[in-house]
């Protein structure tokens, strides 16, 4: 087994552990931190079903962003939907036989790569062109965009310019999943692509990419507007009731 294969196998095992472990830890932290007061941004749904719908619109359509700024919405939504299609398409490298809906998504996923990079380009351009966004951009904001663009372009390169040994790549990943190492092709574009993906997985739980799980825990979006009908009390606030009875002082 080549050094390269072993190295990349280790990198992906480590990246997966960090990605999954980090996200689980963060999600547990969000879930366990109480929201002591009712703070939905109103008008808000008055039922749980309404909240599910609000959250679905937020996650699938970026409703609030649409209200806010059509350019950010266009580039951001384009990027995220394209990324979803690209990821679905990539499932074919981890499944044998390939699921039918993954096969169906194949042509869309292929061209979504271009849309994804275009969306990222638009988002990045705003960081230079809009003075307000320029002011708030940190080096990591630029680098994360660069990282995603690097992943996109190296992938597109392998699909449309210089084909890699895709059968070999699939064997490598199927092997990883069954702890049965198979050789990894040593195409430079592939190695760049995979390195960047591993890096993305590693930084996911320690960066602003936490907006993905975070949005589901945002109290202004996930709370029902029912404060007059239901009493909402955080565990740490229960002691105040007992201490005061009906008197405050």
């Amino acid at each position: 087994m080549s050094f390269l294969t072993v190295l990349y196998a280790c990198v992906f095992y480590a990246a997966t552990v960090i990605f999954v472990g980090g996200l689980v830890a963060k999600i547990r932290c969000y879930a366990r931190t109480p929201a002591p007061l009712k703070i939905p941004t109103t008008p808000a749904p008055t039922t749980t079903g309404g909240v599910v719908l609000r959250m679905a619109r937020e996650v699938a359509l970026f409703e609030s962003l649409f209200k806010s700024n059509k350019w950010i919405w266009l580039f951001g939504w384009l990027f995220h939907v394209s990324l979803l299609l690209v990821i679905v398409r990539h499932l074919r490298y981890f499944t044998e036989p390939v699921w039918f809906w993954v096969a169906m998504a194949q042509p869309f996923g292929t061209y979504a790569g271009f849309a994804m990079v275009a969306g990222l380009g638009g988002l990045w351009a705003r960081r230079f062109l809009v003075d307000r966004v320029r002011y708030i951009s940190t080096p990591s904001d630029h680098l994360i965009l660069l990282l995603l663009i690097g992943i996109g372009t190296s992938g597109l390169g392998m699909r449309f310019v210089n084909h890699t040994d895709i059968v070999g790549v699939k064997n490598f990943f199927l092997g990883l999943m069954t702890f049965n190492l198979q050789p990894l092709p040593s195409d430079p574009a592939l190695l760049v692509h995979l390195s960047l993906v591993a890096l993305l997985m590693v930084i996911f739980p320690i960066s602003k990419l936490l907006h993905a799980p975070g949005v589901f825990f945002s109290p202004t979006r996930n709370q029902t507007d029912d404060s007059r009908e239901r009493r909402h009390l955080a565990p740490w606030a229960v002691k105040f009731d007992a201490a005061s009875g009906s008197k405050s002082e």
Binding site: T33, P36, L65, S68, I136, G214, F217
Partner: peptide
């Protein structure tokens, strides 16, 4: 406060500096 308020905890992590709020 980070331990007592989920809002603060999530809001500290989730911002991506997209700029949607900058003119609001």
């Amino acid at each position: 406060l980070l331990g007592r308020y989920r809002s603060l905890r999530v809001f500290m992590d989730a911002c991506v500096h997209c700029g949607a709020c900058t003119d609001k």
